[in-house]
Design a protein around this nucleic acid. Structure first.
Lengths: 352, 352
DNA sequence: CCATGAATTGTTACCTGTAACATTATCATA
DNA sequence: TATGATAATGTTACAGGTAACAATTCATGG
């Protein structure tokens, strides 16, 4: 039996040196095959469908695999088929718990389907978004889930050239590259503002942080509702990230700028909760003297005293749906709905 | 000029068909080279260090790259060098915001260093952990950050065979595979329990969810402190995940089982916040009639009324340090400290 | 006892970028 | 002009698993 060709890999492992001292390379199929005395093709067949291999060999191959601790290697497959079984997920931020829930939704679908998630974030910078997308594509991801709706020309070109399915998530109002899944942020903010007005609030201030596209859309919705009801809008904002303490700070600012403020609508629950606690500390009664509403439906909003008014958004479902539609497209199905507009829910709670 | 060999890839793209109709393969270096009229090696040199290529070619190559929208491909490199520039991060859960902060810390180091994060989670199941680790290794990750301290024999074998640096995070008390970074959960729980006792609470109940290893360690610390002070311990727990509403529910349960309960120590802030709001709803004064403490130092704990007593843990720093030490090891540096024990901080707040 | 076909195993080529080595072009100096 | 050095470009081989095709084995029926 001529094994000269087969001995290329695996070095001279059998020469009796203590393996713990050798920086031994991770075993390949060839190493397993050498141990059994067959070609790597036979071992490959065993791994894909053991029925293709004779019963005697099955036992020996299994032993060899366990013995060497063989770990499958996707690299050759990725190279030859350009299929990685990995999905790139690109989000603006990991700080925001909203995106953590999106990831959870995505993973709940991808993981059972045997797909690996490659996570990246770009801190709301378009330059960084370009770089992250290039990186994800360099790993030959089979599909991409991205957020935001504005993309540079270079990003669009890369996505087009890559030829993989892309799904944009979070907002449903901009024309998608291929397919978008999200909510109508502007309509949601309009609805909540109207709800606050109906409850009797009129000097409502908008709290915004991280002026990304979705926040701007919500701001527009708020302004439209105020205007349609003959009220004056006022926005307090920052470019940095939102936080509970930012909400506290904004509350003070609002009362300075407009002492008769009787309502606060926040671009997310973090700010709203901070504002609410600031009122409690200052002895301002919520909702009698100050109505406070948030956005997204943070878990805590459903247990706190008073219950926070908020717009309940289907973050996790957005993630799930994005993953499901991506998998469907990977199976070759065409895009059925270019835009999937999910419903939001106005939860008045006890704070407005 | 004989180009017969060079025309293998790229098909017959130049034959005037509308490229938008062709399911065109993503361009390779060969395609770029064909367009310029050089070999792919020259283009490869340009990409790595454009000085290695003549000035005239530089211009033409740049044009061709832009024109075709070439995207680098890591697959060949991963195959031939077994280096992916990707780091696997394996966490028990993505639901828990504590882990979201760990991820943030990890990414804050890995991303600027040019490493890609491959995220996976295993829902506290050892079987799933095995599968996830095998998957991450199949992508040839250059290093791994994992949590938990107990691992199956198969996991240990895989990690050993893979020969890549591995860092375990979250707890610092178990002997690590190679290196561990975390806090002493047991000592932290002991300290907080003692603090509650000193504040005058004695019938303290422990709320636990998701009985993972860290929760069990904290429970031990609580029990030890109670015992050392001659007090009786009582634990209310569930195997499912913690949540704010779970904390509310536990509060009712505690008062049924032990009506004179005057303190609650929770394995995390979610439960504590839920318990606190339950007290507010029931008219139980905190901390006068009921002391409540949490664990981790959720952002909200620092703004709520009353301020929540909690153990402030350096989640993000754990992530950062893990990534930094991993990068250091990838540069060839040896493990300097097998265990890095980070300090926690007892924050009494206003709720005990 | 050989032909037939199914079952089993082997062989070759391929995917793409780059290290290592080889070749050709360019230029200054003897 | 020849020569050697340097710059620029080309050629070959390789990483590891698998598709596609080839070869071998073996049992069964004619």
């Amino acid at each position: 039996m001529d094994m000269s060709l087969d001995m290329k890999s695996s070095g001279m492992k059998s020469s009796g040196m203590k393996s713990s001292l050798i920086k031994s390379k991770r075993p390949t199929l060839q190493d397993v095959a050498n141990l059994v005395g067959v070609t790597k093709m036979t071992v490959s067949r065993y791994l894909k469908d053991s029925n293709q291999v004779s019963p005697q060999l099955r036992i020996k191959i299994k032993e060899a695999l366990d013995d060497l601790g063989y770990i499958p290697n996707r690299a050759p497959d990725i190279l030859s088929k350009s299929k990685s079984h990995a999905i790139g997920v690109l989000l603006p931020s990991l700080t925001n718990h909203v995106f953590a829930e999106v990831i959870r939704g995505v993973e709940s679908i991808l993981e059972p389907a045997g797909y690996q998630t490659m996570l990246a974030h770009y801190g709301y910078s378009q330059e960084a978004e370009e770089a992250r997308i290039a990186t994800l594509l360099s790993y030959n991801v089979d599909g991409l889930i991205i957020s935001e709706s504005y993309h540079t020309e270079r990003v669009r070109k890369m996505l087009s050239v890559a030829g993989i399915p892309v799904i944009e998530i979070m907002d449903s109002t901009s024309p998608p590259i291929e397919q978008a899944i999200g909510i109508d942020n502007q309509a949601a903010a309009y609805a909540m503002t109207e709800c606050m007005i109906k409850k009797g609030h009129s000097k409502i201030v908008y709290f915004a942080a991280r002026m990304d596209q979705r926040t701007l859309l919500r701001l527009q919705g708020y302004k439209a509702a105020m205007h349609d009801n003959g009220l004056t809008d006022l926005c307090i904002s920052t470019d940095s990230a939102s936080s509970f303490s930012m909400g506290e700070q904004f509350m003070k600012e609002a009362l300075e700028k407009q002492p008769d403020t009787d309502g606060i609508f926040c671009t997310n629950d973090d700010l709203a909760i901070g504002a609410l606690f600031a009122c409690q500390k200052a002895g301002i009664k919520v909702p009698e003297e100050m109505g406070i509403a948030g956005f997204h439906g943070h878990d805590i909003a459903r247990v706190m005293v008073p219950l926070l008014a908020t717009v309940i958004t289907p973050r996790e479902e957005i993630g799930r749906l994005a993953a499901e539609h991506l998998l469907s497209r990977l199976k070759g199905n065409p895009v059925t709905e270019k835009v999937i507009n999910l419903p939001f829910k106005i939860e008045p709670g006890e704070s407005i």
